[in-house]
Amino acid sequence: MNDLLTILVTGLAQGVPIFIVASGLTLIYGVLHVLNFAHGGFFLIGAFILTSTIQGGSLGSFFGAVLIAGLGVMIVGIVSELLVFRPLYKAGPTVSFLGAFALFLALLGLAIVVWGTNPRTVRYPDALDGSFTVAGARIGEYDVAMVVLGGVIAVGLWLLLSKTSLGMRVRAVSHDRTMALALGIRVGRVSTTVFAIGAFLAGVAGALIAPVSSIDEGLALSTDYMLPAFIVIIVGGLGSVPGALVAAMALGVLESVIFRAAPDLSGFSYYLVVALFLMFRPQGLFGSSSRSIQMAR
């Protein structure tokens, strides 16, 4: 019984970075109709920036570095949107998809040129290093911090999308791009903004996993998080942020349970779930069958 709480918190904590990556992906898909492969590159660069900028083990330094990572990657994201995606938008989704993949490879290469191939590790911030016991269950402090942070980001995104005028424009563009254009919404600027938000989130997610795993040149590292994020947005319904949240948390917990119950099967749960979903509910949890994009309802 006590184990259950541990499994739950670990699972949620694993789901958080995936949710953060996936929420950016799903927003970008909603507005640009691109599955942005380059997100894996953004993620990796976020992690690398953290390893370079963090100093000491204080909490402030850690979250400062996380913020710098997010902002740095945001700049990379804005540049890539202007240079790569804007020219490709008219060419259709397949070409944009390949453009995103090209960008992904280029960013991975760039990361190696800048940071080299030696794996880097980062310590947990001192204040979050330990664990505590609740009702007999051992819970890592960093895991709790992750869950809280995930909650903050989810609420922040919800407020941004449903309560601000920017959010309204984003929803309008993703609902009907042509109509939004006719209404005088500057669609190009909204696209760049959404891309910037998505890239920022990817950078933050990358920075947050730095203490949990070793950061290296990382095709493996970036696919470890990018593929689950892709699966999460398919399971949650393309374009739906709440869908991404629910799917990421559910899959994180499921993976954590499977890791405990049947370690041989760990790593497969995402693939199994996506297969089941595509068989029985191809439009995902929160998607509608006509594929019109719904966000932040």
Partner: peptide, 21 residues
């Protein structure tokens, strides 16, 4: 020339996708 060929393949693909689809 490049230690890692990824960056080259990526840039080549980018140029092709944008300039010569």
């Amino acid at each position: 020339i490049f230690h890692e060929s990824n960056i080259f393949v990526g840039l080549l693909l980018l140029v092709i996708v944008i300039a010569l689809p």
